Simulated assay, not measured.
Amino acid sequence: MSWLPNLQTETPEEGYQLAIKLSRMAVKLTQPDDEARNKMRPGYASNYDSLIAVSHVVAVNFQTVSQANNYWR
């Protein structure tokens, strides 16, 4: 089974968690080497520009999930 069978969620909170998962999977698929990702983590973990960029990516993914769920109407 796929890790992403669809974008449907029951609640906005579940949708937000899915948006985070989409964002994390993008990083994992872009850099599949766990060791390399772990080496890079300290460089962005304390960099406010990087953290703001992460927030933006999650927000864009949440917008996509929200649209797919008709904004939970």
Rank of each mutant, 00 (worst) to 15 (best):
G15Q: 02
N38H: 12
D49R: 04
K39H: 14
A36H: 12
M25E: 13
Q17T: 07
T30D: 09
N47M: 06
D49N: 13
A36C: 12
I20G: 04
S46C: 07
Q31H: 13
S46H: 08
Q17D: 08
P32V: 04
Y44S: 10
D49P: 06
Q31K: 14
A36M: 09
E35H: 12
Q17N: 10
S23A: 03
N47H: 13
M25I: 02
I20T: 05
D34L: 03
N38T: 06
A36R: 14
R37A: 04
R24E: 10
P32H: 05
A19H: 00
P32E: 11
Q31C: 13
T30R: 05
P42Y: 08
Y16E: 09
P42D: 10
Q31Y: 14
L29N: 11
K28C: 05
N47Q: 09
V27A: 14
L29G: 07
D33A: 14
I20V: 06
P42A: 10
D49C: 01
A45L: 06
E14L: 04
N47I: 03
A45E: 14
A45W: 03
Y16A: 07
N47D: 15
L22M: 01
S46T: 12
K39S: 12
E35W: 13
K39Q: 15
R37I: 03
E14K: 02
N47L: 11
A45Y: 08
G43E: 12
D49A: 06
